[in-house]
Amino acid sequence: MKEENIKSEYQRKVDKSLIPTCNIMGVNIAAINMNWLLKYIDENLSDIKGDYICVSNVHTTVTSYEDAAYCAVQNGGLMAIPDGGPLSSVGRKRGYSDMDRTTGPSLMGEIFKISAEKEYRHYFYGSTEETLKLLEEKLQANYPGIQIAGMYSPPFRPLTEEEDKNIIENINKTKPDFVWIGLGAPKQEKWMAEHQGKIDGLMLGVGAGFDYYAENIKRAPMWMQKSNLEWLYRLMQDPKRLFKRYFHTNTKFIWNAMIRGK
């Protein structure tokens, strides 16, 4: 994707400059915590629909450092929240004392908890039909009164222009407040950037969040989450896929962000 193609004419109704950020390896990571984020979303939801939030970690940050177009995608949304513990740790060392790890799955859970009361409507885009069916069953059981506006599992191929237009129309017909995107990085962030201003809901790229809430996979114990060791738990769950990624990105992050101060 060329950098000029991901720049949108989308005009925000809120002032993005009021969101505190810490630049880490070129990515403007929101220097926030969960309480700040939930309050911000609650107060501004009607004005931030059509925009997107990136859930950023070491992998997406290193990828952004190596790919200018993807970096522009990360920086082009409403904000990039610190899903990875190392991001918030670097931020605090750089003077952002209130910056804390704010994971995509945790954000989903906090929003799901208040959805019945707030009458939030949710759309889920991504994953497989099987996972979406499980996700719907588990959410309805665990969060009584939650409104699932719609779900769609896209094909594993590029969509035609007509297909994409139909998907946008179908999503918007459901009048969602939140549009959760589960395509995995970097695909989900690029999808959100391409649909900025076209989707009438707040888009959030949450990666494995669909699988967590469908209960296909388990999150790390809370003590590991609080100790920034959730990456190790995920590595133990899927070593073949994640070992090479973690070795590549973690070493580059330590060298560039922690040692060189990028």
Rank of each mutant, 00 (worst) to 15 (best):
N5K: 14
K7Y: 07
S8T: 15
E9D: 15
Y10K: 07
Q11A: 15
R12G: 12
R12L: 10
K16H: 02
S17M: 01
S17D: 13
C22N: 10
C22D: 06
M25D: 12
A31G: 04
L37S: 06
N44S: 11
N44K: 09
D47G: 09
D47I: 05
I48R: 07
K49M: 03
Y52L: 13
C54M: 06
C54E: 03
S56K: 00
V58K: 12
T61Q: 06
T61R: 00
V62M: 13
S64M: 00
Y65A: 14
Y65D: 11
E66W: 03
D67L: 02
L78H: 05
D83E: 09
P86T: 04
L87F: 02
V90T: 05
V90I: 14
V90D: 05
K93G: 14
R94D: 04
D98A: 12
R101S: 08
T103K: 00
T103C: 07
M108R: 04
E110V: 03
F112K: 05
F112A: 08
K113F: 00
S115T: 14
Y120N: 01
G126I: 03
E130D: 12
T131N: 08
L134Y: 13
K138S: 11
L139C: 10
Q147G: 00
Q147F: 00
G150H: 02
M151T: 13
P154S: 09
P154N: 02
P158A: 13
L159K: 06
T160V: 04
E161C: 09
D164F: 06
K165G: 09
E169D: 13
K173V: 08
T174F: 09
K175A: 12
P176I: 04
F178P: 02
W180D: 11
I181P: 02
I181Y: 06
G182V: 10
G184S: 08
A185G: 09
P186T: 07
P186S: 08
W191A: 07
A193Y: 02
E194Q: 14
H195I: 06
Q196G: 10
K198G: 00
D200E: 14
D200Q: 10
G205N: 01
G207K: 02
G209V: 04
D211S: 14
D211C: 12
A220Q: 11
P221D: 10
E230H: 12
Q237L: 10
P239A: 07
R241K: 12
F243H: 11
K244T: 12
R245H: 13
K252P: 01
I254F: 15
W255A: 15
N256V: 06
R260F: 08
